[in-house]
């Protein structure tokens, strides 16, 4: 078979990441030069779509073989997948509610935040998604070493994100939680999101440890798949939260 650059799933993961990074830069440029919330929304939807399709493999939800034995691993795996997606649908409503509250309280204005920090933590999360995908793909391809290394890097990047948000941004923000709608919106959105990143890190530590002990095989690694899909979900939330906090509208003086 001709070596197509998108045949290799690892290579595909890399290309998707590069496109995501490019789109983030495009998004930033949009904010700088256009100030159009519509363009930012389109960019965010494009990024979210890429993650949903290429990292979260949403297509697997619909390619279900109904005919196989109910008690088989494969059948239960598909059921588990459905359960995870239902969970994420439910969780989206919390983030949706926070987003609507942000729009209700601040409209087309945004909090005064450090753009470099914002880009920094966003990059950490984006790169972590690349490595999370790499971890899952490696394991599915039989490369346990790469899985472990990539999972470990993902953990580090996740911790970096938490430090960046809670440790740096929260300390350096020119406003506190009680300071007007800025404080309300910024701390609640980043707080809820960071909590989910934290739970993702816990999940990652669990699969890393179990992975070290050889618990996962090419055929049976649902926990790893679930961890990866959840991690990407948390990334998708940030794909919408980042422009909502840093890019749209005008800064409140």
């Amino acid at each position: 078979m001709k070596a197509n650059k998108t045949n290799n799933p690892l290579r595909l993961g890399l290309w998707v990441f590069l496109l995501l990074a490019l789109l983030t830069a495009v998004e930033f440029a949009f904010a700088l030069w256009f100030g159009s919330w519509l363009l930012l929304l389109l960019a965010a939807l494009a990024k979210a779509g890429l993650v949903l399709v290429y990292y979260m493999h949403i297509a697997k939800l619909f390619k279900v073989d109904e005919s196989i034995d109910r008690e088989s691993y494969g059948y239960k795996l598909a059921t588990n997948r459905l359960g995870l997606w239902l969970f994420m649908v439910s969780d989206s409503f919390i983030f949706g509610g926070l987003m609507l509250s942000r729009l209700n309280l601040m409209g087309l204005t945004r909090p005064e935040l450090d753009q470099a920090l914002g880009l920094g933590v966003t990059s950490l999360l984006l790169v972590s998604s690349f490595f999370m995908n790499r971890a899952e793909t490696s394991l599915a391809g039989g490369d346990r070493r790469a899985f472990l290394a990539s999972a470990f890097i993902t953990i580090l990047l996740g911790i970096g994100f938490i430090i960046g948000v809670l440790g740096v941004e929260w300390q350096l923000a020119p406003f506190g939680p009680g300071d007007g709608p800025q404080g309300t919106v910024f701390y609640s959105m980043t707080g809820f999101h960071a909590f989910h990143v934290f739970t993702g890190i816990v999940f990652l530590v669990i699969i890393f440890r179990n992975g070290l002990r050889g618990r996962y095989s090419v055929e049976k690694h649902w926990a790893v798949e679930a961890c990866a899909v959840y991690w990407h979900f948390v990334d998708v939330v940030w794909i919408f939260f980042y422009p909502a906090l840093y890019l749209i509208g005008t800064v409140v003086p």
């Binding site: 919390i94 926070l98 939680p177 009680g178 007007g180 609640s188």
Partner: peptide
């Protein structure tokens, strides 16, 4: 999730002063 969110917002307002529903804080 929305009733949870709305209740948690009041809890956060009481505990940490986030002014979701306080007009004095926007």
């Amino acid at each position: 999730q929305l009733i949870g969110l709305s209740f948690q917002m009041v809890m956060l307002q009481r505990l940490f002063g986030l002014g979701f529903f306080d007009p004095a804080k926007g």
